[in-house]
Simulated assay, not measured.
Amino acid sequence: MRLEQCEAAIKEKKNEMIKLGMTKGLQNEETICCSQELDKLLNDYHRLLLDDNHSKPLNPYVDFFSIFTKHVHRILSIPYRSFFI
């Protein structure tokens, strides 16, 4: 799986989990299962980032943590207005 495909799968799974959580509750078995699937996708994404960073040399002035944080934050950021619609 490529980074772009993984990002799309994470966004889709995140939206599914939000819908399940809002309709069935956070303690529902389906919601928990979806959350675990999202965790697996995030772990896969992290592995892809590590592989990608090992194949291309990092700029010595940019540390890995800032790159990783930027990517994860971009994927997981939820617009505040979606909670009020």
Rank of each mutant, 00 (worst) to 15 (best):
E4W: 12
Y80W: 12
F84L: 06
L58G: 04
Y45S: 14
H46G: 01
E30T: 04
C6L: 14
S66R: 13
F83I: 04
M1V: 08
D63N: 12
M22I: 01
Q36N: 15
H71N: 07
V62R: 15
E12H: 13
N43M: 11
C33I: 13
F68S: 07
N15Y: 09
S35M: 14
S55C: 08
K40C: 00
L42V: 06
E29N: 08
K19Y: 07
V62K: 15
P79I: 12
T69H: 08
N53L: 15
I85T: 03
I32K: 13
N43Y: 08
I32A: 06
E4N: 06
I32W: 11
Y61H: 04
K14L: 10
D63P: 08
S66K: 10
V62Y: 05
K11P: 01
E7G: 05
E7Y: 07
L41T: 00
M17C: 01
G25P: 09
E7V: 09
M22W: 07
L42D: 01
K56N: 12
I10K: 05
M17A: 00
D44W: 06
I75K: 02
E7N: 04
P60K: 08
L38P: 00
Y45M: 10
L3Q: 07
F65W: 04
C33D: 02
E12I: 04
N59V: 03
E29C: 12
K56P: 00
S82W: 09
S55F: 11
N59D: 14
E4I: 11
K56G: 01
R81N: 06
M22V: 00
P57F: 10
D63A: 08
R2C: 05
F83P: 03
H73A: 15
Q36S: 07
G21Q: 00
Y80I: 06
C6G: 01
K11Q: 01
H73T: 15
H46N: 06
N53A: 15
L3R: 13
F83M: 04
A9Q: 13
P79T: 06
K13A: 00
G25C: 10
R81L: 09
T69C: 12
D44E: 12
E4D: 11
V72A: 07
D39Y: 03
K70P: 02
F64I: 06
L76W: 11
D39I: 03
E7W: 03
P57H: 14
L41R: 13
E16K: 14
I32Y: 10
P57R: 13
R2N: 11
L20Q: 01
D63H: 15
A8Y: 13
I10E: 00
R74G: 00
K70D: 01
N53T: 14
H73S: 15
D44F: 11
E12Y: 05
E29L: 14
R2D: 03
P79V: 03
A9K: 15
L20E: 01
E12F: 04
I67Q: 10
L48Y: 03
G25D: 10
Y61G: 08
L58R: 11
L49A: 03
P79Y: 05
M22N: 10
M17R: 12
F84D: 06
L26A: 11
